[in-house]
Simulated assay, not measured.
Amino acid sequence: MPLFKTIKPNKYTTVYVWKIEESFKDLSKNMLLTERSESRLLSMKSEIHRRGFLSVRHLLKEAGYTDLDLFYNGNGKPHLTNGKHISITHSFIFSAIIISDVEVGIDIEKNREKIKIIQDKFVNFERGFIHKDDDYIQQLTVIWGAKESLYKIYPHGGLTFKNDIDINSFQIADKKTSGYIKVEGWDKNYRIEFHQIDGFTLVYALDIANND
Rank of each mutant, 00 (worst) to 15 (best):
F4A: 08
F4Q: 01
T6Q: 07
K8P: 09
E21P: 04
E21V: 04
D26Q: 15
K29D: 13
M31V: 02
L32V: 06
E35R: 13
E38P: 05
L42N: 09
S43L: 02
S46G: 07
R57G: 06
L59Q: 06
A63R: 15
A63S: 15
D67C: 06
G74P: 12
G74K: 04
G76F: 05
H79M: 04
T81W: 15
G83R: 03
K84P: 11
H85K: 12
S87T: 13
I88A: 06
I93M: 01
I93F: 03
S95G: 13
I99Y: 07
S100V: 00
D101R: 15
G105P: 13
K110T: 02
K110G: 01
N111P: 01
N111E: 08
N111I: 11
N111V: 09
E113D: 14
K114Q: 08
K121V: 07
K121C: 08
N124M: 10
I130G: 06
D134N: 08
D135G: 02
Y136F: 15
Y136V: 06
Q139H: 12
T141Y: 03
V142Y: 10
V142P: 02
V142H: 10
K147T: 12
K147M: 09
K147L: 08
K152Q: 06
Y154C: 00
L159I: 02
T160C: 08
I165D: 07
I165A: 07
F170I: 10
K176A: 01
K176M: 06
K182S: 04
G185T: 07
K188D: 00
Y190N: 02
I192S: 04
E193S: 09
I197H: 05
L202P: 04
L206D: 03
A209G: 09
N210E: 14
N210I: 04
